[in-house]
């Protein structure tokens, strides 16, 4: 019983230490030579017509991914339908 708890705690510690060290090394944050975000910031208002750059990226530059996310929402709906809607006595 106590060995199982020690094993679980040690695996969790190794997991967390490795994750945090990965995130420290990789250098998140503002990167000057990131030409993609520079292009988005400059061309959002005139080419898209939207002042909100987040909306422009979500709906215009990467609109196909947003269509995929809406499809995921619809798929969740169909999945919930499949599992939940049982009438009384139906298997």
């Amino acid at each position: 019983m106590i060995m199982k708890n020690i094993a679980f705690a040690s695996v969790l510690c190794i997991f967390l230490v490795s994750f945090i060290s990965i995130f420290t090394y990789s250098g998140f944050g503002y990167n000057e030579n990131n030409k993609v975000s520079h292009y988005y910031l400059e061309n959002s208002l005139e080419h898209t017509g939207s002042a909100n750059v987040v909306s422009a990226i979500v709906w215009d530059f990467r609109g196909f991914d947003t269509m995929g996310e809406e499809t995921v929402l619809f798929t969740v709906l169909v999945g919930v339908f499949t599992v939940i809607s049982l009438k009384a006595g139906e298997v």
């Binding site: 208002l45 898209t48 017509g49 939207s50 002042a51 909100n52 909306s55 422009a56 709906w59 215009d60 609109g63 947003t66 809406e70 929402l73 619809f74 969740v76 709906l77 919930v80």
Partner: peptide, 23 residues
């Protein structure tokens, strides 16, 4: 400052609300 994003927002919003009310 609307452009295409306005129409897409409306269509997406209707889809989201229909899905959630059905759930």
């Amino acid at each position: 400052s609307a452009g295409y994003v306005l129409l897409l927002n409306v269509a997406g919003g209707v889809m989201v609300l229909a899905a959630l009310i059905t759930i």
